[in-house]
Design a protein around this nucleic acid. Structure first.
Lengths: 171, 171
DNA sequence: ACGAGCATGTAAGAGGTTACATGATTAT
DNA sequence: ATAATCATGTAACCTCTTACATGCTCGT
């Protein structure tokens, strides 16, 4: 995937919330946001350097313990601008999803193939994990007050329409 | 994604169905199966050569028109074996999905952000397209006779459980 | 003191995209 | 004829992963 360096914007987006060191970002990828984004530290550190060279972030060090200099990065004004430009860019209409599950499903012609059932069960586990994450995020973002719920009525209606269709497919 | 060369198995899987030229495979990626897999011709042609060198496929040319030699590939016995080994490999439990939609949703803290609604609408269109494709595939694979439906009862039950959970999330 | 985790980096190489290139076929 | 599409290839480049490498800190 030689794509358009999305990591760059992920880093800007995270630094837009608060100052972070490279290692902190690595930890975020390992835990909190790992369900929908991940990068290795070997990619994070060079990218942070590049962003600083380009002026989108600044850094300063802080002594931890006796000797260790931990480097914290903060977003700059131009970084903030760049980030919001990216957020405004529409999602690509043709997401070239490389979905291994659907792929295998397509390549297995035999309905009685011994791995079919196992594959479905695995896929279901993956979806369940994703679902749990999404529900949590939704609770955080859209809270539970009736007032806020009304504001996002349109969102709920549209999303529900999609889900209903999916249920028709299954049922 | 420096992954484990999935394209290799996609090619084997397609050639397992019938003889194909590189260009035919390119066309398949552009149309029929493009929803869940895609590779450029600049990646397909070298990979086919490599597979032939490794003995997993063979090729022969066929004259089209006056001069053009179109090269068709066919799977070998060892290729068939390799493919079915791969099909038996379990899907990776931790799919590092790089989901730009969820990502942007996470990075946008402001519930009143002007792009939020547009983003949801776009995402819904993407899901609708995917849904349509999946329904079609399901109809092809699992046909509609009552006998076959019973055989896939377990599949339906499990899938339904997943969908119901998703609907709870929305509703 | 010692081990687990914190913290940061580089190098090699695989996978994938974009662009460069060329020529034949087919339908209008 | 000529344009769109068929058909095949290579080169440069970028992203990302794997592996190599080093040193510090903190809790027990």
């Amino acid at each position: 995937m030689a794509k358009k360096n999305v990591l760059k914007y992920v880093l800007l987006g995270l630094l837009n919330q608060r100052e972070l060191a490279g290692y902190d970002i690595k930890k975020l990828f390992d835990c909190e946001i790992g369900d929908f984004w991940h990068s290795k530290h070997s990619q994070i550190y060079p990218e942070l350097k590049r962003l600083e060279e380009e002026g989108y972030i600044t850094s300063h060090t802080k002594i931890v313990g006796q000797k260790l200099e931990k480097r914290f990065y903060a977003i700059t004004e131009s970084g903030h601008t760049l980030l919001h430009h990216w957020l405004a860019v529409p999602l690509e209409p043709l997401q070239p999803t490389r979905d291994e599950f659907t792929l295998k499903l397509y390549l297995i012609n035999d309905k009685h193939h011994p791995h079919l059932r196992q594959m479905f069960e695995q896929e279901i586990l993956l979806h369940e994990a994703k679902f749990n994450y999404l529900r949590e995020r939704r609770n955080l973002l859209f809270a539970s007050s009736e007032k806020q719920k009304r504001e996002f009525g349109h969102y709920l209606i549209l999303s529900h329409a999609v889900m209903r269709k999916k249920c028709i497919w299954i049922g």
